[in-house]
């Protein structure tokens, strides 16, 4: 089991390393939010430009982690199309090991992307002390793991590389916008505050923001609990899809078309 997970993780990280230029390209989006959107909205907000940038830094970090983790999960869909996954599927490793390996590998890729963004914190006015940095990395790791679980849970149900990005965007963008990443939840309309309670991204962003600003919207224990619950539910959902017995070659996506 452990060996199987390690094998899947090494496999994905090797492939990630081939595409390492993605780390640089992946910086573009959060920096755009931080310094362009952030400057524009910040100038027109009551907080003022500097404070607003500092405020949305954890939000853009969340965005970066969210998209890199989900993008890592796309390899599941991609492999299924080129047949590579079949070779993994007929290997004598338990199915849960594949699901867990994918989740861990996605989280690592996501956290590496986050670490590339982290040095920009001082530029956004969010300088972190040594203890804060450690706390921040801890919160990032938790967020990355949750987001990777979400990515895998979505990806394992698709077998088309064209459908998956559309579908995942349809889920991820609302989650990000509701998370309070770009505005304070406490001044948001009541229904958005209620909705945010069902949004794992909101808890993850709130933890990171708490580290930077020192004030939390959700109690810390609630955030930790919500993220843990999300992970437990989604991991077991993914494992169930990976475990589906009939017609393993399609890995649970069989409803979207079969092949002889």
């Amino acid at each position: 089991m452990i060996r199987g997970i390690v094998a899947v993780v090494i496999l994905d990280l090797k492939r990630f390393w081939v595409d390492r230029v993605r780390l640089v390209v992946g910086l573009a989006q959060p920096l755009l939010y931080l310094f362009v959107l952030g400057a524009g909205i910040g100038a027109s907000s009551r907080m003022g430009g500097g404070d607003y940038r500092r405020f949305i830094f954890p939000g853009t970090m969340g965005l970066s982690l969210l998209f890199s983790a989900t993008f890592a999960a796309i390899t599941i869909v991609f492999d299924r199309q080129i047949g590579f996954f079949k070779a993994v599927l007929v290997a004598p490793i338990p199915r849960p090991a594949i699901a867990l390996g994918k989740i861990i590998a996605g989280a690592i890729q996501s956290i590496v992307q986050g670490m590339v963004l982290l040095p920009f914190a001082p530029l956004a006015g969010a300088s972190l002390g040594p203890l804060q940095t450690v706390e921040m990395i801890g919160a990032m790791a938790l967020a990355a793991l949750t987001f990777s679980t979400m990515g895998v849970a979505i990806a394992c149900r698709f077998n088309s590389t064209t459908v998956f990005p559309v579908a995942s965007n349809a889920v991820l963008m609302p989650m990000f916008f509701l998370s309070g990443g770009l505005y304070p939840l406490k001044v948001a309309p009541h229904w958005m505050q209620v909705a945010a309670h069902f949004d794992p991204v909101a808890y993850a962003v709130d933890l990171m923001r708490g580290v930077v600003l020192g004030e939390f919207f959700f109690p810390v224990a609630l955030s930790l609990g919500a993220l843990a619950l999300t992970m437990v539910l989604l991991v077991s959902a993914s494992v169930r899809v990976f475990n589906r017995g009939e017609d393993d070659s399609s890995l649970g996506a069989s409803r979207l078309g079969w092949r002889r």
Binding site: L11, K14, R15, I82, G83, A87, V88
Partner: peptide, 20 residues
């Protein structure tokens, strides 16, 4: 259909299979 990772070397592909 091809079941090797095209972007990795042959040696890496076999190494990873060995781990699996």
């Amino acid at each position: 259909e091809p079941a090797i990772e095209q972007r990795l070397s042959g040696r890496d592909n076999l190494f990873l299979m060995g781990l699996l």
